[in-house]
Simulated assay, not measured.
Amino acid sequence: MPYENKQDLPVAVKNNLPSHAQDIFKEAFNSAWDEYKDKEDRRGNDSREEVAFKVAWAAVKEKYHKNADDKWVKK
């Protein structure tokens, strides 16, 4: 299910990612949700939601990383 706003994001995302990273996650998740709606567009047996989560986290990791204090910070 796509997310309409950042308040709808999972608690683990809201409690750990900075605001901008949450925006990236939401947009990437929603885009992947649309792009991979058909099972034949996905690799393996991952569900639509699993693929969207993988895409969203990959997008976040393009711009952010965890620092020594285990906090997500901009690269």
Rank of each mutant, 00 (worst) to 15 (best):
G44D: 07
N15T: 04
A32E: 05
D46Y: 03
E35M: 14
V51I: 15
D34C: 04
K26A: 03
E35D: 11
D23E: 14
D38A: 12
H20G: 01
W33D: 15
I24S: 01
K37A: 12
I24Q: 02
K26W: 04
G44L: 07
D23V: 12
N15W: 15
H20N: 08
N15V: 02
D23S: 03
K39T: 10
S47G: 12
P18I: 06
D46K: 14
A28W: 04
E50S: 11
D46A: 12
E27G: 00
A32N: 09
R43I: 15
S31V: 03
D23W: 01
A32L: 01
D41P: 04
A28N: 09
N30D: 15
K26M: 15
E27A: 05
E35L: 11
Q22V: 09
K14H: 09
A52P: 13
R48C: 05
A52D: 06
G44S: 07
E50Q: 15
D38R: 12
E40Y: 06
D34H: 08
D38T: 03
P18R: 14
N30F: 04
F25A: 00
D34Q: 07
S47E: 08
A28D: 04
N15K: 13
K39A: 14
S31M: 08
N45I: 02
W33V: 00
R48P: 00
A21D: 04
D23L: 12
H20D: 14
R43S: 14
S31H: 05
D34P: 00
L17Y: 02
N16R: 08
A28M: 05
F29W: 07
D23F: 01
K26S: 00
A21M: 12
D41A: 14
R42P: 00
A21Q: 12
K39D: 14
A28G: 14
F29S: 03
D23T: 11
Y36K: 10
S47M: 08
N30H: 08
R42L: 03
L17V: 02
K39L: 13
L17N: 00
Q22R: 14
V51R: 13
D23C: 02
A21V: 06
D23K: 05
K37W: 12
E40G: 02
E27K: 13
P18L: 06
A28Q: 02
V51A: 01
E27L: 09
E50Y: 02
H20F: 04
N45V: 04
D46S: 11
S31C: 02
A32D: 06
N45S: 10
N15S: 15
K37M: 07
D38P: 01
R43W: 12
E40L: 08
F29I: 04
R43F: 10
I24L: 13
H20E: 09
R42C: 03
E35S: 06
E27R: 10
L17G: 00
A52K: 03
K14C: 07
I24D: 01
R43M: 11
F29L: 06
R42Q: 08
Y36F: 14
E40V: 03
I24R: 01
P18K: 07
W33Y: 14
N16L: 06
K14R: 15
P18D: 09
G44P: 07
D41V: 05
D46R: 08
A52F: 01
N16Y: 05
Q22K: 15
A32C: 08
